[in-house]
Amino acid sequence: MRIPLILVDGTPRVNAILFSNRYHFGLARITFVVDTGSNATFIGEEDFAGLQISMDTLHKEEAFKMAGSKYNLLLGKEGTLLFKTNENKTTRIELPNIPIAKTISKKALDIEGIPSILGTDFLEKNKLTLYFNPSKDLMYLEKEEY
């Protein structure tokens, strides 16, 4: 089973739907950058803003630095990510806690927040392999079949 990726501005991205019975947003759109340079997976500020989740429902996990700015990694309640496969079906991946990155400080005001990231932790935990061949515009995540 493969999850196709879309190359945008040099970065492989994938759309997902986030679903959680614990929040009111219903089915929410998340656009992830697949980033093998990150060992953490989280929802970035643009997608988080759309979720309209109260900060009171999140607890702080740890602070981290990325691209020169500082962020807090916050954990929400459980959720499910849904992706579209190359066979035009959906595949679901459970999240025990919805991870969210919130800015603590930025290097400059005109620098955007970080996007939503699918990192190596997500690939490892869910047994996903990244195939990335930008010169042929061929890229996808492949899940091991059982």
Binding site: F25, G26, L27, A28, R29, T31, E46, D47, A49, G50, L51, Q52, D110, I111, E112, G113
Partner: peptide, 12 residues
């Protein structure tokens, strides 16, 4: 807002 694609656009 949770159904709309939101993206920051910058020449940088």
């Amino acid at each position: 807002p949770s159904k709309v694609f939101i993206q920051f656009v910058s020449k940088v």
